[in-house]
Design a binder for these strands. Structure first.
Lengths: 156, 156
DNA sequence: GGGGATACCATGGGAGCGTATGGGCAACAA
DNA sequence: TTGTTGCCCATACGCTCCCATGGTATCCCC
């Protein structure tokens, strides 16, 4: 699971270190998938498993469904597979960088099944904007009844 | 279950001992999840099971739901997984400490399924404030006339 | 009940390792 | 050639893990 957030620097060769904990979350694989976010000025990234989920979900749509084509174009078409070096770094290409407005600092933000890479100031601004909504939405979590399968013992 | 409250000191390396009873509440696991409280100047913490509940609850929201994104950003993006050493200590990073205003003393407060870490004076202030509010609220309850449709049994 | 032994807990310090980051070099394309 | 890309080595710092110490509460035995 991608958790927490980290800031790392982009060097002259446009390389950034993927946070060590994110690399561990990828479970030993040496590649990540990256794509420009559809609706936000940032880069999104994930491992093989989320990519497979996308593929499966798309498989549920009709072959000629326009939406399928749109999704394929924007997700499959825009995604890149990046291999990181032994230092755990990847190279961000110019398109990804400019889409997110990143120059020399990049903030990695874990979102569970995926992560995002933001220009630090832009991330702070977005977060401030989201705060009220997050507070409201907390109620959604609390309202959830305990499911039969869960193990209450583990919390004690 | 996280119960009662304890005060422990933060050393030069920003380490704090997790109260022994809290460690027992984690049921043998050697990690805790920590995140800055969304609405209070303190740190919140919990074990794996509460984190799983968060993740599951979020999974119920639609992928493009703004609330899902807000929650993911504030919960997954802010939470850290901390492993404690054999002495039962964890390291608090600078962001968590500054958000809670903690310098050299930390008060652990059990809240059942999670716990909070406060700067001792801030905790006392909050408690005093809560007490006043609780007293006021009691007055409101007494003043309230019994409604016709209500069930007197349930209130007694 | 007093005294001591023991186990556990909180806290301090040090050493080794992993991570982040900079730079060099060769292969390849424009 | 010149710039770009992938691969490798080098280094410093910070963090994690481990060992050590002192204090306290509990239990047992005398």
């Amino acid at each position: 699971m991608f958790l927490s957030s980290y800031e790392s620097s982009v060097d002259l060769k446009k390389r950034v270190s993927i946070p060590a904990s994110f690399r561990k979350a990828l479970g030993g694989a040496d590649t990540v998938y990256l794509w420009p976010s559809l609706d936000k000025p940032c880069i999104e990234g994930a491992g093989q498993s989320l990519m497979n989920e996308f593929e499966d979900s798309m498989g549920d749509l009709d072959l000629m469904d326009k939406r399928r084509f749109a999704l394929a174009t924007y997700i499959m078409g825009e995604a890149r597979q990046s291999k990181f070096d032994e230092g755990g770094r990847i190279v961000l290409d110019a398109e990804l960088l400019s889409n997110a407005g990143i120059s020399d600092k990049a903030r990695f933000v874990g979102l569970g099944d995926r992560f995002q890479i933001w220009e630090p100031a832009a991330f702070e601004a977005m977060k401030a904007e989201m705060r009220a909504l997050a507070l409201e939405s907390l109620g959604l979590l609390k309202a959830k009844p305990r499911r039969p399968g869960s193990n209450p013992q583990a919390a004690e």
